[in-house]
């Protein structure tokens, strides 16, 4: 009985487009994730490896947080942080210049 109520509540929440805050997700945790994403983005930028949409995702995460959509904000911040890390690693892996093999002569 109780489970059913939870499911109905969830469905209703989805239908209304309301934030699906899980018990452990509070604004402080989301804020920390956004800061971590911003740091990762800056680190990628410091080696010219920033990706196109990372800053946009961080901006959007801040907006979602401000509007109370914690889960959505968390998702965006997590993806943005990952992008920052990957952009940084991408550049670090190419520090040593190597002529690609497809230029043969």
């Amino acid at each position: 009985m109780r489970n059913k109520t939870v499911i109905y509540a969830l469905l209703l929440g989805l239908a209304l487009g309301a934030p699906l805050a899980s018990a452990s997700l509070d604004a402080t945790a989301v804020q920390a994730a956004i800061s971590a994403a911003e740091d990762a983005r800056k680190q990628a930028a410091s080696v010219n490896g920033e990706w196109r949409d990372t800053a946009k995702k961080i901006k959007e995460a801040k907006k979602m947080l401000a509007e109370g959509y914690l889960a959505k904000a968390m998702d965006l911040a997590t993806v943005a942080e990952r992008e920052g890390e990957l952009g940084y690693r991408q550049m670090m892996a190419q520090q040593e210049f190597e002529m690609p093999a497809f230029i043969k002569h």
Binding site: G49, W51, R52, D53, Q94, E98, M99
Partner: peptide, 12 residues
Amino acid sequence: YTRRGQLNFSCA
């Protein structure tokens, strides 16, 4: 010749 961006392509 450096790969860049999410698609990991260089100009070359």
